[in-house]
């Protein structure tokens, strides 16, 4: 059982890690804790549903499952379009709410506004799609038996693979591209970066685009391996914050490793405490890290 919990923990941790990267960047670069970030996962998942349905109706190539997976090539179309749509949503929120507030109010007001925005986003999903769980596909999958009596579904293997590719791609972007390097500069010192000729407001747009795209991928993968519900993101608020704070604000690998730690602790906790208390585990992690090492595992000490 132990190894099965480890496998499940790694899988849910991968999704949490992907989602937490954007949150971590916003905490560091935009300097506020965005409670509405997790709703981008929900919207990403439902955007994915729309585009997946459209793509699947276009032809059998998109619809027919690939090998042992439960979905066809349409899922890749859905992933890309969902990332674009979720980024557009995030930029819209930035322009309508957060940018304005940043100019006129303190950053705690932004935290608070993100509360309101989260409420709006979540209930709009409920309004449009209804309260019942939805699945991308009803294909049956056969679990793969790994050594140690661990069972994983092919979709879960896909999840892990895609996560690794996305994180590696982002690593290249942050270290090789001009935008990525400028982004790291802004996160260290916005004023100095501005003086050095970095267009800070365009960098901030990039933070939203990257955060939202990763959130949408995480949302789709969550929908694929668990289910789509309007409360999808809401249930992930604490795990995402736990991962971002554990990893240290602004740290790419910190967020990923933080996500894995959160996923593992959640899944291993059921061996000690009743399953019903599992949602409190990320909160305990947050308390512990803030108490012992508030800058996070990979953050810089001030």
């Amino acid at each position: 059982m132990f190894l099965q919990h480890v496998a499940d923990g790694l899988l849910s941790g991968a999704v949490i890690g992907l989602g937490a990267i954007g949150l971590s960047f916003t905490m560091k670069i935009l300097r506020f804790a965005n409670f509405s970030h997790s709703e981008l996962l929900t919207w990403g998942a439902y955007f994915g549903l729309i585009f997946f349905t459209i793509a699947a109706s276009l032809g059998n190539v998109f619809d027919a499952p690939i090998g042992p997976l439960s979905f066809g090539w349409g899922m890749f179309v859905a992933l890309i379009f969902s990332a674009v749509a979720t980024s557009a949503l995030a930029l819209l929120l930035h322009k309508l709410v957060f940018e304005k507030l940043n100019r006129v109010a303190g950053h705690m007001t932004m935290v608070f506004a993100s509360f309101g925005v989260a409420l709006l986003l979540r209930h709009m999903v409920l309004l449009i799609f209804g309260p019942n769980p939805i699945y991308y596909s009803n294909e049956l999958q056969f679990a793969v038996l790994l050594p140690g009596n661990v069972r994983v579904l092919p979709d879960q293997v896909f999840l892990l693979g895609l996560t690794i590719i996305v994180v590696f791609g982002l690593h290249l972007f942050m270290t090789r591209s001009r935008t990525g390097i400028a982004m790291r500069g802004v996160s260290e010192n916005p004023d100095l970066s501005r003086v050095a000729g970095v267009n800070v407001s365009s960098i901030i747009n990039w933070v939203w685009i990257i955060g939202a795209s990763l959130a949408s991928v995480a949302g789709v993968l969550y929908g694929l391996t668990v289910q789509l519900r309007p409360e999808l993101g809401f249930g992930l608020i604490l795990p995402l914050f736990a991962a971002a704070i554990l990893g240290g604000a602004g740290s790419l690998y910190g967020a990923v490793i933080g996500g894995l730690i959160v996923g593992l602790s959640e899944n291993l906790s059921v061996m000690i405490i009743p399953t019903t208390y599992k949602p409190a585990v990320p909160f305990l992690l947050i308390l512990a890290i803030l108490y012992f090492r508030p800058e996070g595992l990979f953050g810089e000490r001030k």
Partner: peptide
């Protein structure tokens, strides 16, 4: 903001 996250938890 950490207080916000913690009290939410």
């Amino acid at each position: 903001e950490y207080l916000a996250v913690a009290t939410f938890g």
